[in-house]
Amino acid sequence: MITCEEAAHICTRKQYSEASWKERLQLYLHILICKACASFSRKNTQLTKLCDKAQLQTLSKKEKEHIKKKIQEQS
């Protein structure tokens, strides 16, 4: 049986599809009997959905360097 802390970390890795099938099974079994982790897991999954939904974009590193250079030139 895994601890709540382990379950939480597996849950976070699962959000990035980086939990193994064995870990996912352990998490699943843990959630069946642990309400706190079930709630955490639900929220964590929801956070992933919110981030997808917001369609956040970032400027690439290169673009940021470019802007930084421009700022330095002017200041």
Binding site: A8, H9, T12, R13, Q15, Y16, K43, N44, Q46, L47, L50
Partner: peptide, 20 residues
């Protein structure tokens, strides 16, 4: 993973009231 886990936990709390 520790950093991401902490970040996500804080974000959940921060977004909690309005978005969850």
């Amino acid at each position: 993973w520790v950093l991401i886990h902490r970040a996500r936990t804080s974000l959940m709390a921060c977004l909690d009231k309005n978005w969850f």
